[in-house]
Design a protein around this nucleic acid. Structure first.
Lengths: 249, 249
DNA sequence: CGTCGCGTTGATTTTGCTCAAGATGGGTGG
DNA sequence: CCACCCATCTTGAGCAAAATCAACGCGACG
């Protein structure tokens, strides 16, 4: 079965670096959003010793659906996508991953989705076994994982509503607001919102085709809700209007 | 905003009963599938004292999306559906609930979906606060909740693939196999599979219309994959064939 | 400067939706 | 016990939203 979406599968360890070796996690900019945000300094030290930094280039393949689930990951930089495939190549992107997001919330013996870098990215990698060991002595960590799973569940349930009920117009509006919101949570620009993924990826996330996504952006532009796409950034001109559309009014 | 799907909102406490008062949980038939399956006898005793039995008739309303999330529930009998609505009445059924299933895995301040009984049902009800208190001293319970959330996440991700990629034919095939599998997990008949919900409910779960669901059942029947619907039971005649369709070959 | 990947736009087709009309069957009351 | 009734389900005909097929523009990069 050919995987039409697969690209390179390179997996490069980050170059060792003095600062990183001294205090790799304490300096992490996204810690407050990540699993490790719940850890006390002492725990953080122990945590940081069991992890390894991973750097990916755009298009690099990190995980193949079905492989034994040995590692879990925490995204520190960039954007990735995780997706499922049908035998004939149809693809559903389950979600996009941003700094602070965790890969491995739905634990199982084998990965249930594939993961690929959308942009150049970096992640912390840890064996699931190690993580489990750590959670036993760090109730905060366990609680944090639980909360993140809880949030992920709510997110994906919202996505069901989108895929099951919403029109193309509503889906794209919802998507833009989602990106904007997630950027805001991470302290990035919410208004000219960064859209790092291709039309193809957006289409496979929204259950549409590239062409429909493209046409829908054009329509939103024509309707004065968004500005034109400049350097992967889209300006939201009429946020309340976009919200109304997204909510299905 | 009128909720076109809402019916009665009655919520009847079960009649007290001697056996139930002596040892209500120890005798529970679905305990092994439920949250409480992870508890030691002593813990079970404490657990059982904080819960209350709830009985619902088909169509009864249990939870309204948006209400403060005070209670969590564990289904002990029957079938329920949980769903989200758009302002104009479009409905997405997120999932069906069977004995052993838990309501409240995605914790938040307000319920994120509504819940309604498909058939006459009964549940155990507990305040979320109480549950949290219990988990602090019962690591098994906590782990069990975590595992159930993990499974729920994997399930709903599979549903994304269905809604985003699959054809009507594939969706209905997937649905029948899902019901059959879930019945099997609970020790019920897997082959003439029980389909307690209406075509309308199935449609809103699969992102289709009633008519399309009905037509699709007819086609599966014509193609010799399933038998006719007898008393809410559907016979799967060609299980491997149905699986191939469901997987998208 | 040419090529290639990506995005946009247009023309046509198709899947599933909408609207409409019967069929079925479980429940109720005479 | 039967007849009727209303829900639900099924089937049909036409329609529409999005998919498919196809062409073209544009910018990046060798």
């Amino acid at each position: 079965m050919p995987n039409v979406h697969q690209k390179n599968t390179v997996l490069k360890p980050a170059l060792p670096n003095k600062d990183a070796e001294d205090n790799p996690c304490a300096a992490c900019e996204v810690r407050s959003h990540a699993v490790c945000g719940a850890l006390a300094p002492a725990d953080l030290e122990r945590f940081s010793q069991t992890k390894k930094m991973i750097v990916l280039e755009a298009g690099d393949h990190l995980i193949d659906e079905g492989e034994p689930e040995v590692f879990v990951f925490s995204v520190t930089d960039g954007c990735l996508k995780y997706f499922k495939l049908l035998p004939d190549g149809r693809r559903q992107i389950i979600g996009f991953l941003f700094p602070g997001d965790f890969i491995g919330l739905a634990k199982s013996y084998n990965y249930t989705s594939s993961v690929e870098a959308v942009t150049d990215s970096s992640l912390c990698r840890m064996e699931r076994r190690e993580l489990e060991k750590l959670t036993e002595s760090m109730p905060n960590l366990d609680r944090r994982l639980h909360d993140m799973a809880s949030l992920a569940l709510a997110d994906v349930q919202g996505q069901l509503l989108l895929l099951g009920c919403k029109t193309a117009y509503e889906r794209v509006a919802t998507f833009l607001l989602l990106l904007s919101k997630r950027a805001g949570e991470r302290g990035m620009d919410t208004n000219p919102v960064d859209v790092p993924m291709s039309r193809d990826d957006i289409a496979d996330f929204l259950g549409l085709t590239t062409e429909t996504v493209s046409r829908t952006f054009s329509r939103l532009r024509k309707d004065g809700l968004i500005g034109s796409d400049k350097n992967r950034k889209i300006e939201i001109i009429n946020e309340p209007g976009l919200s109304e559309i997204a909510e299905g009014f």
